[in-house]
Structures are given as structure tokens and as C-alpha cells.
């Protein structure tokens, strides 16, 4: 039943019962719904940052900064990491444990590489003399990359726990759930990064 129909029902009239599954708003498993809700919150958070960024740009003291080249490399690494998780997810659906392992390993390692690369980018900026926080573009650069990195770190906790589950040889169903959650989260972080990176490049 469409949401509109559900919300216009006259509850004092409808008395017929419904299958329990129908009472759920989404056919997804609850953890996935939970993750989506969280991603909605994170999206609001990043969007607000971007809005503030664009707004702050309109003030006269804004001096654009040139992004270090390693960000391109990092972007590639993040794509690999996201692909790794996707690979793991696909294999989880197939029930291929080895595939899951490879995917998780590739995804996790690439994530660490990405974080290292981001730190390197910070170093490069400092070396270039970009630590004058009075320039809002620089402040934003550290803020936004830092925030994105923190989210990725949080994801790595989930990655760690999923890997532990692989070790512990929990059932495939459980694994598929965990791997799926990771994959969705990494895709999200990739999209966020692409948007952030695009904005940083353009300004």
C-alpha cells in the first residue's frame, strides 16, 4: 500500500488483519533501514557543511587554494576500496567465502591507504605553507577532509568487526548482512568524497 493510502486510512473502520511483513514500512532488513537513516543524517550534516562552505565563499577574504595532486591518487584508492567491498558483497550473495575475504581485505587495505594518503595531503599542504588558518578555504579543507576521514575511521571499526566474524565463521546469512552494510556505507563515503573533492577542485 502506498504511503499516501496508509496515511489516509480511517483506522476506526479498517479491521481486517495484515501479514506482519506488511506492517514494516520497508522490505529491507532492519539494520539496513537503520543504516539508511544514519546515512540520511550524515547527508544532512555534509550538505550543511557544503552550504556553509558556498556561503562563506561569497565573502571577500576567500582565497582559493590549489589542491595537492595526491588527492587524485587518493580518489582512485577510495574507488578501489569501495569496489572491494562491493566485490565482497556480490560474493556474499553467491555464498563464496573466499571472494568475501578477498573483497574485505582489498577494501580495508585500500581504506587505510586512503587515510594515509589524506594525511600525506595535509603534510603537503603544510609544506606548501598552507597552514594560515585565517584563510577560510584552508580551514574548510582540513575540516571537510578530517570529517570525511573520521567517518571512514568509524567504518573501519565495522570492517574490523566483520572481519572478526569471518574469522569466527559465523553463518553466511549473518555475514552477508554485515558485508552488505559495509558496502553500502563505503559507497556512500565514496559519493561524499567525490562531491567534496569536486567542490574543492572547483573553488
Amino acid at each position: 500500500m502506498g504511503i499516501f493510502q496508509q496515511l489516509t486510512e480511517k483506522p476506526w473502520l479498517t479491521v481486517e488483519g495484515k501479514e506482519p511483513a506488511e506492517q514494516r514500512a520497508f522490505s529491507l532488513e532492519s539494520p539496513h533501514v537503520g543504516l539508511r537513516v544514519f546515512l540520511a543524517v550524515a547527508t544532512v550534516l555534509f550538505t550543511l557543511f557544503l552550504v556553509v562552505y558556498v556561503e562563506r565563499m561569497t565573502f571577500p577574504d576567500w582565497r582559493p587554494l590549489s589542491e595537492p595532486w595526491v588527492l587524485w591518487l587518493n580518489t582512485l584508492v577510495l574507488v578501489i576500496s569501495s569496489a572491494g567491498f562491493h566485490w565482497a558483497w556480490v560474493n556474499a550473495d553467491r555464498g563464496d567465502l573466499d571472494g568475501i575475504k578477498t573483497g574485505l581485505l582489498a577494501g580495508g587495505m585500500a581504506s587505510f591507504a586512503f587515510l594515509a594518503g589524506q594525511l600525506w595531503a595535509w603534510r603537503l599542504l603544510v609544506d606548501l605553507g598552507y597552514y594560515d588558518m585565517a584563510n577560510p578555504a584552508i580551514g574548510f579543507f582540513y575540516l571537510l577532509t578530517g570529517l570525511h576521514g573520521l567517518h571512514l575511521l568509524g567504518g573501519l571499526v565495522a570492517w574490523f568487526r566483520t572481519s572478526a566474524k569471518v574469522k569466527a565463521e559465523v553463518g553466511l546469512a549473518q555475514l552477508r548482512l554485515s558485508v552488505g552494510l559495509c558496502a553500502v556505507y563505503w559507497h556512500f563515503l565514496l559519493v561524499v568524497w567525490l562531491v567534496l573533492f569536486g567542490l574543492l577542485l572547483l573553488t
Partner: peptide, 11 residues
């Protein structure tokens, strides 16, 4: 959203 019991429609 997800854990309502049988018959507990939104309305």
C-alpha cells in the same frame, strides 16, 4: 518503522 506487531498499521 520496522518492529510494529501484526495489525499495527501506521494509522
Amino acid at each position: 518503522l520496522q518492529a510494529r506487531t501484526r495489525g499495527m498499521t501506521l494509522m
